[in-house]
């Protein structure tokens, strides 16, 4: 590592905000709904459509109920943080910009082995795909780097470049910790030690794992899934793509909890995902129409 003290979790975020803000990105706030990945944020999904330029960066809390481990596994979380950057159209020096951000957070590319390893991205629930890489730092995947080709089943015209940093992994790397829960969340002061990631989130992991795996009322969730579906369709009939899309996000998260509860069989899984995809696609189509873009 470098001579200076490694960045705390919060300083990692602040440094990326500072870096991407200087590159002309609007620094947005997280979307205020439960979602599985930063890509679901309307700043990515909807803004990736249409011809208008768009440059934004934000943190997105990402919920993955099935990945919860009751706070016991040092590498896995049911809720974690993604740092998303979307640049549209993708600039010609996107890789250099990205590598600049790694330097900004203290990764020296002549000390650490940075590699772009083929990994094509696909989101079956968003009807989206792109080509790109997972970026490796000494063999660890720290970022997903994607050139969006389609979103909601529509060609991206123009193509956006999307960067998704796994913040906890990067922080573990920078701080040289073996457990997520040992990460320094903030900075120690003269009279107070730094608090850890575990201090902030471990109890959430325990309770949410119990809820997702053991307690969540599946009848209520099946019902909620149906209602979100119906509400989405109603919004689409009123040509309201944003509220429609929010219902699609809601349905997607409910589906994820049902998966964690183990009540969706392998056979049903594809059909639930297909329903969410239809909602997301319908929302994207309504968004295109609302903006007067050819579908």
């Amino acid at each position: 590592m470098s001579d200076v003290a490694p960045l705390s979790f919060q300083d990692l975020i602040l440094t990326l905000h500072d870096y991407w803000g200087k590159q002309g990105c609007a620094i947005l706030q997280p979307y205020d709904m439960e979602m599985g990945a930063g890509t679901f944020h309307t700043a990515t999904t909807l803004r990736a459509l249409g011809p208008d330029p768009w440059n934004a960066a934000f943190v997105q809390p990402s919920r993955r109920p099935t990945d919860g481990r009751y706070g016991e596994n040092p590498n896995r979380l049911g809720a974690y943080y993604q740092y998303q950057v979307i640049l549209k159209p993708s600039p010609p020096n996107l890789q250099e910009l990205y590598l600049g951000s790694l330097k900004a957070i203290g990764i020296d590319p002549l000390l650490h082995d940075i590699r772009f390893v083929e990994d094509d991205w696909e989101s079956p629930t968003l009807g989206a795909w792109g080509l790109g890489w997972e970026v490796w730092c000494d063999g660890m995947e720290v970022t997903q780097f994607t050139y969006f080709q389609q979103m909601g089943g529509f060609d991206c015209k123009p193509v956006s470049g999307e960067l998704t940093y796994g913040l906890e992994r990067l922080a573990m790397y920078i701080q040289n910790k073996d457990s997520i829960f040992d990460l320094a969340y903030n900075n120690a002061t003269a009279d107070r030690p730094a608090i850890t990631y575990g201090d902030v989130f471990r109890e959430n992991e325990r309770q949410m794992s119990t809820y997702h795996f053991e307690v969540a009322d599946t009848d209520m969730l099946f019902d909620a899934f149906k209602k979100a579906t119906a509400e989405c369709e109603s919004c689409l009939q009123h040509a309201l793509p944003i509220p429609a899309y929010e219902q699609a996000i809601k349905a997607s998260h409910i589906f994820n909890i049902l998966q964690a509860r183990g009540v969706i069989s392998v056979q049903e899984r594809a059909s639930y995902m297909g329903r969410v995809r239809d909602l997301a696609k319908g929302s994207c189509q309504a968004w295109m129409e609302k903006n007067g873009w050819a579908v």
Binding site: P92, L131, Y147, D155, C156, P158, G161
Partner: peptide, 18 residues
């Protein structure tokens, strides 16, 4: 794939990566 400003058209140049 397509990439960059030219990709506003789906007829723009395609290559394995930019």
């Amino acid at each position: 794939q397509r990439w960059g400003a030219a990709s506003v058209s789906t007829e723009s140049l395609r290559w394995v990566r930019p």
